[in-house]
């Protein structure tokens, strides 16, 4: 079927007119439908994402929490998220999809960690120093990392406090808030959890030109007292 030049011009004019009439609202509806899908699929908070579900639920970005733990041998550390990852944490709280949380964990898993605070029961006050590159005996190992993160000691009954940590696994837990109006009670509940192996040892082995097994043996246990 051939269209004449006039017909083509008329057709494109009509298209332009409908685009002009319906583009803003089409975008609004399209984004809102995507928001709906992400709320169902990935647990996006109703408050954000252009779906206009604000002021409809107590489950907002402000009432969600994400806790990250670093596992290392029999140690289990609570990780305080470094400042440069706060934006990613904020996103992960509001949209805790596998991809977004894993992206944050990947970044964490490539860092060298130092113990920031030692929680001795009942006092929670011992502050430990920052990362000391001497422990690693290879400047590149440190400079290749994307800055040292900080870790809070998690097990209150431990006596030996490690100085630096190369975690073998990272775990993230996303919590939501629930409100029971009849009992006037708020409660934090676990929504989802994710985990990822630590990658720091592999990076160090590659930089030091050593086989992973040898490095792992040299550095064992991964928490160096």
């Amino acid at each position: 079927m051939h269209l004449s030049r006039q017909q083509l011009a008329r057709f494109s004019r009509a298209q332009r007119r409908s685009l002009q009439r319906f583009l803003p609202v089409s975008l609004l509806v399209g984004v809102a439908l995507l928001h709906h899908w992400l709320v169902i699929k990935d647990g996006l908070t109703q408050w954000k994402g252009g779906g206009f579900g604000m002021f409809s639920t107590v489950d907002s970005g402000g009432t969600r929490a994400i806790s990250v733990f670093a596992k290392c041998g029999e140690w289990n550390f609570r990780v305080s998220i470094p400042a440069d990852l706060r934006g990613r944490r904020s996103l992960a709280k509001r949209l805790p999809s596998e991809e977004i949380v894993q992206l944050m964990l990947k970044d964490l898993s490539r860092r060298v960690w130092v113990v920031e605070r030692y929680h001795a029961v009942p006092r929670r006050q011992t502050q430990l120093g920052p990362l000391d590159s001497l422990y690693l005996s290879h400047d590149d190992l440190v400079s290749a990392g994307r800055g040292a993160g900080r870790i809070e000691e998690w097990r209150p009954d431990s006596t030996a406090v490690p100085s630096y940590v190369i975690p073998v696994r990272f775990e993230a837990e996303v919590y939501r808030l629930e409100y029971d109006i009849s009992a006037r009670t708020i409660r934090r509940t676990l929504h989802s959890s994710y985990s990822r192996p630590g990658e720091r040892l592999e990076i160090m082995a590659e930089l030091a030109g050593l086989p992973l097994s040898q490095l792992a043996r040299n550095l064992a246990p991964c928490c160096k007292p």
Partner: peptide
């Protein structure tokens, strides 16, 4: 824009049990 924005806003409120029973505004 006003119509669709409020349609979605009303939809989310209507399908959220925690809104309909008054919990959200109370909290």
């Amino acid at each position: 824009l006003i119509g669709w924005c409020f349609l979605f806003a009303a939809y989310w409120k209507a399908v959220t049990p925690g809104f309909v029973d008054g919990s959200f505004l109370h909290f």
